[in-house]
Design a protein around this nucleic acid. Structure first.
Lengths: 115, 115
DNA sequence: CCTCTCTTTCGACAAACATCGTACAGGGTG
DNA sequence: CACCCTGTACGATGTTTGTCGAAAGAGAGG
């Protein structure tokens, strides 16, 4: 039988051994995406619309795809909503310490501004 | 007063507290620039033309500027040549562990291919 | 069945980017 | 001085990127 589960298009998530550190860096080199990742580092899983970013919904979808294809996030469907989670362990497996080093470097740079 | 020191245009190097981690990530998210940085991580200082990359000279100049403006490298003039060095300590000061974590992630990904 | 909400897809568009060729500027060396 | 060598600056080009609005799909609830 043809159509498997229907729903929407199946989400593509790269395998751990397909991760490319250049793609990861590129994905993270954007303020909106960095905010998404940082938010997920605190909260394990969130619905798409609940991120503290200020862009149009379609732009957000675009950023999610960049992050997803770099292996940084995983998305699953639940009814009407799409939930997003960090692939933290997968990243840690492949590039130990990378994500946290980058995220905390960004945090240091950003959080110290207000002081 | 017209000409300052003559020579060429003075090279601009950002201050340590002006470093932006997003710029650093963007600068590193390119194979040619990553190769440059990786080479410098082994050798402290090299002349411009001595990097194992395969691009036109003008392209190389462009990549050096991106790295320089992100604070990753420092360049100085010596007669005919321009010498390039990593600003490793400055980066370490501002973003501890960042450079080595990234470079070794790239190394792990790249060096294991041939096995 | 109709409508509302959440999210995606598509098409468009301007800005940024990697790349190159050509022309040029300074320093070395014959 | 004439020449070469190293590296820059500029302009062009094709691609990628971030952004949006409009249209549409799919589930939830009346």
């Amino acid at each position: 039988m043809p159509r498997s589960h229907s729903r929407r298009a199946t989400l593509i998530h790269p395998d751990v051994d397909e991760f490319d550190v250049l793609d990861v860096l590129h994905a993270l080199a954007d303020p909106t995406r960095m905010t998404i990742v940082r938010t997920l580092r605190a909260d394990p899983e969130r619905a798409c619309g609940t991120f503290p970013v200020d862009v149009a919904p379609s732009t957000l979808t675009h950023h999610f795809r960049v992050l997803r294809e770099a292996g940084i996030i995983r998305q699953r469907e639940d009814g009407n909503r799409r939930w997003t989670a960090l692939r933290f362990e997968d990243l840690e497996d492949r590039f130990p310490g990378l994500l946290d080093t980058i995220v905390s470097a960004y945090g240091q740079q950003t959080d110290s501004v207000t002081t």
